[in-house]
Design a protein around this nucleic acid. Structure first.
Lengths: 346, 346
DNA sequence: CTGAAAGCGCTTACAG
DNA sequence: CTGAAAGCGCTTACAG
């Protein structure tokens, strides 16, 4: 292991004190142009990399943040996590991850470990569904940001997908295609589902219409529920020419039954899903028109917010990140859109 | 911000020198039982957490590892990444992630940043498909482990799913169910596909049989290919009573066409997929019997190997992590297996 | 068994 | 504008 070159090496090479070298390398304090150049050259020549650990000790900044994960391996949290860590990595900050699994004891453990490690901030990664998390902000003396979760304290900085926007862009797309009898099939008793439904219904109302079948059809997130709902829709097919589905599973369930009953998609009934599940799995079949929540962007936004908060400018409150419509055959028909031809609404 | 308690505080509280306190707290060197106890009590009373940054500087260990990601947001790399970071987190080591996107310049960049940060080791996270990665082991003076990838240097420590085992347990399951005319539909020109096929064929041969339809049907990983292959199978239905599919997409494509043509699954043809894609998406429909590559375990195993390598005991060579059969309706029929009732083969 | 001292590699008032 | 010094909080030979 070749001895690493240190700041003293650079100082000696440039013939100055190491405090002077430190100043020019951090760009702080006045230094004469020639001295500065000499030092910069020396650093360059020696290919100097400051020892981050030493800097951390001297400055009290660790350039590492803690990440607390509620359901670390959840399909939907995975992209958020990747967005988090990769954005943090770009900013040169490391990540110390603990999977909490809603176990309060582990939480205590983690907080202790975090303290030892002098983390600069904490990211709490939820599962995107649950009720508000109990705020841990007060327990720490570093900034906290909640990603894919909300906290029960209104001053906390939280990042979530914009469910209302999802409903809105789905409605706008369907209305633009001339659909006027838009129904929705989704999960019951779910805040996220309710947000999407609200965005949908409000947009339909603004256009002078109302939700087809009067009420949302609500039960759960499964393909099976989609299939059953499709039977009901098929029985009242005159009243429906489009369905916004709570997720892609439901959409797929509906698609299968509708086709089996001889109802054409999208000619008779257009379908819009949510999750961009195919996109996630990298297939790009373009079967379904769907709303992509851009989960990795949720993580990225939360990470950026945390870095800013560490720098002193917090962004308290709930933030809803924009989603994106990804068009496919279930609204445009076969061959209408190129593969992964995403239309972005803002 | 309440001043943190330091080792000197503990030493003073216990009435000893801080070097002595350091020794007992790290469990190194002989110290009398009573002194030891006094120090331990003091540390406890003060709730002392050693400043990790200071320890790092003093010992030269950073407790952070670099992670280089080839395709950071790939559906299949996501669980591996989560397995990595979470296993590392449990061991109290932080993670510094850079997404390389096969860009050699970024790689150089990253190596420099890693050097500055004194990382203890490096994890290279591949995409599970590509040809061997170019080994970067020689460029660093810290241990390197490749996860979900192989390197072009045979001494490197690499962790991959066990593709042959996947084919084997699929075959064993189908044979156990009495199937004797097993075909396979998979991708062409793909090492991973070839491994699974080999495991399948060898197991069938050991049982005294041979692959149905003589040859593997090979093209790509899409559902569309599954559907087309299913047409061919349907035309020669007498020769086939089971299909091992290269992935779940293909399986789903086959399933749809077979049913549309009045061929019963699993009664006439049993289907086994690969990826446990449904499981990934958290639905647990149990529609498909499939082989779960346990991707997060790949990451976990690689992380453990890296930690061991850092401690001095490397595990060079290619490691194939066991996969797992997850049974579903496509081989056992409706209601046969409970939800996510996984059968583990070893 | 225990203490006094040097050192890890930087940063940052403080003088001059 | 630049240098000498103290300090960040620990670890670890080295004496005694």
């Amino acid at each position: 292991m070749p001895k690493a070159v240190t700041l003293s090496d650079v100082a000696r090479e440039a013939g100055v004190d190491l405090s002077t070298a430190s100043r020019v390398l951090r760009g702080t304090g006045r230094v004469s142009a020639t001295t500065r150049q000499r030092i910069l050259d020396a650093a360059d020549r020696l290919d100097f990399r400051p020892n981050a650990q030493a800097q951390f000790l001297a400055t009290g900044i660790s350039k590492t943040v803690g990440v607390l994960t509620i359901n670390g391996y959840g399909t939907f949290t995975l992209p958020v996590l990747a967005g988090l860590t990769s954005t943090l990595g770009q900013q040169d900050v490391a990540t110390l991850l603990y999977d909490v699994r809603e176990d309060p004891e582990i939480l205590q453990e983690s907080v202790k470990k975090f303290r030892a490690r002098q983390i600069d901030g904490l990211l709490v990664l939820g599962d995107g569904l649950q009720a508000p998390l109990h705020s841990v902000t007060a327990n720490l003396q570093v900034p906290v940001v909640y990603a894919f979760a909300t906290s029960d304290s209104p001053d906390d900085s939280c990042f979530m997908p914009d469910g209302e926007m999802a409903g809105r862009i789905a409605a706008e797309h369907l209305l633009a295609l001339g659909r006027r009898r838009i129904a929705t099939v989704t999960a019951a008793d779910d805040i996220a589902a309710a947000d999407r439904t609200r965005g949908l219904v409000e947009t339909i109302r603004s256009a002078g219409g109302s939700l087809a079948l009067d009420q949302p059809l609500e039960r759960d997130w499964t393909r099976l529920w989609g299939a059953e709902a499709a039977e009901r829709i098929a029985d009242r097919i005159d009243e429906v020419d489009a369905v916004f589905c709570g997720n892609d599973q439901i959409a797929l369930g509906i698609l299968g039954v509708l086709r089996a009953r001889g109802i054409r998609v999208p000619e008779d009934v257009a379908l819009v899903g949510y999750d961009n599940w195919e996109g996630m799995v990298g297939q790009g079949n373009n079967l379904l028109t769907t709303v992509d929540p851009r989960l990795s962007e949720i993580g990225a936004a939360a990470a950026r917010a945390l870095v800013h908060a560490i720098d002193g400018s917090a962004a308290p409150g709930a933030h809803h990140e924009p989603c994106e419509l990804v068009t496919g055959e279930s609204t445009l028909g076969v061959g209408a859109a190129g593969p992964r031809d995403a239309t972005t609404y803002r």
